[in-house]
């Protein structure tokens, strides 16, 4: 076992343009159609997918960072690539589907440690956090995750 010094690593997003990198208050980045006002996540940039709308003007908007747990599951076995396990030996993790009230949509995300599927309950409040997806020698690759709201019915 050897240790990395956290400060020396470059912190980068796992994908460009899906979320902000503010460590304290990260936000998902969606788009909103300027014509029909509908929301998209992942952000649609080229065209609106509402069949009644032919607009190609979409603007980037921050999505709600809290929502209600629609449902959840977990991975007892390592998913295939392009999934990258953060640890050499795979550790099971939970995934959460969270409903955003304002945007009226459900957005998936991993659930950060130490929370597991046993800490989750459909209907509870969840909040967005930034957490490492995996690390290399030089980089810490970050992604959005959903964590139970403190005092919101769990740990």
């Amino acid at each position: 076992m050897f240790y990395f010094t956290a400060v020396s690593k470059k912190v980068i997003p796992a994908i460009e343009g899906f979320f902000t990198m503010d460590p304290e208050a990260p936000r998902l980045l969606g788009t909103q159609c300027k014509a029909c006002q509908t929301y998209f996540f992942p952000p649609e940039r080229g065209y609106c997918r509402n069949p009644e709308c032919d607009s190609e003007e979409l603007e980037t908007v921050e999505l709600s960072h809290e929502g209600t747990l629609w449902s959840y599951s977990h991975n007892g076995y390592k998913p295939p690539p392009p999934y990258v396990s953060p640890t050499e030996e795979f550790e099971p993790f939970a995934v959460a589907a969270v409903e955003l009230e304002r945007e009226k949509m459900v957005v998936m995300g991993m659930v950060p440690k130490p929370y597991t599927h046993e800490d989750l309950k459909v209907g509870q409040r969840m909040q967005l956090v930034l957490d490492p997806l995996y690390e290399t020698d030089e980089e810490r690759v970050m992604v959005w995750k959903w964590r139970p709201v403190e005092g919101g019915g769990s740990k």
Binding site: I15, Y83, M108, M110, L133
Partner: peptide, 13 residues
């Protein structure tokens, strides 16, 4: 890559 969602995860949901 971003969520680790396998097909069985959807069935689990």
């Amino acid at each position: 890559r971003l969520v680790g969602m396998t097909n069985p995860n959807y069935f689990g949901l």
